[in-house]
Nucleic acid binder design. Structure first.
Lengths: 104, 104
DNA sequence: CAGAAATATATCAGATATGATATAAACAAC
DNA sequence: GTTGTTTATATCATATCTGATATATTTCTG
């Protein structure tokens, strides 16, 4: 993993800091991070053309700051919240499946 | 929703009990439940031909009881754990994407 | 530039998910 | 039917995720 990418992940709260910590990640955990980031990017792209973060938060019974975290790939956001958000912007399970299928 | 299906979900811990509670579910929440159940079914099918629950649990640094819950669609299991488990059985992001894309 | 609107960051108490453990039930093979 | 293997259920302390709130920063518009 390149330094710049690791730095970016660390800023978002991902525990991939040191090399040894990075090696502690199972392959599955690494893939899940990639999936989360892919969903996050897709959500941001779609939400921006559809509504404000506050509007989306209302639909979800969530809060604007949480949407911001979701769109920025924050580690505290679950795949479930990412999916609920994507669906609330009008994306479908098919769309979500396509995004995940393209990871790696 | 038919009675039999609602009963099955209730047994697994899903809060879809009464009609009014069911109506409280946002459409996105309902779809997410379907996605979880689809992932759960796929995991069970794949794991059964590949290894025991205990072996999978070891690969994941998890426990056999948690794998049992994952395979039986228990509400306490996150999408993230379902995905990590699927990946550990040898399934790929592409496989996972296909399962989700077929929901609904 | 000034004010408004949108987005980002920080903090936190409560809710949900977690692996561990114990143990029960189901299922084989003998 | 007894023994060994696998899967299911129950409980629990800890860790993680949650929406809410306050507030800072960026971006838009006039």
């Amino acid at each position: 993993m390149e330094d710049a990418k690791r730095k970016s992940l660390e800023d978002k709260g991902w525990k991939v800091g040191t090399v040894s910590e990075f090696l502690d990640l199972t392959p599955e955990e690494a893939v899940v991070i990639e999936i989360k980031l892919a969903l996050s990017r897709c959500l941001k792209e779609r939400r921006q053309v559809a509504m404000t973060q506050a509007e989306l938060a209302n639909k979800l019974h969530s809060s604007q700051p949480r949407i911001a975290k979701a769109e920025n790939g924050d580690a505290s956001v679950s795949i479930e919240l990412l999916m609920r958000a994507m669906l609330a912007t009008g994306l479908t399970p098919h769309d979500i499946g396509q995004v995940i299928a393209q990871v790696n």
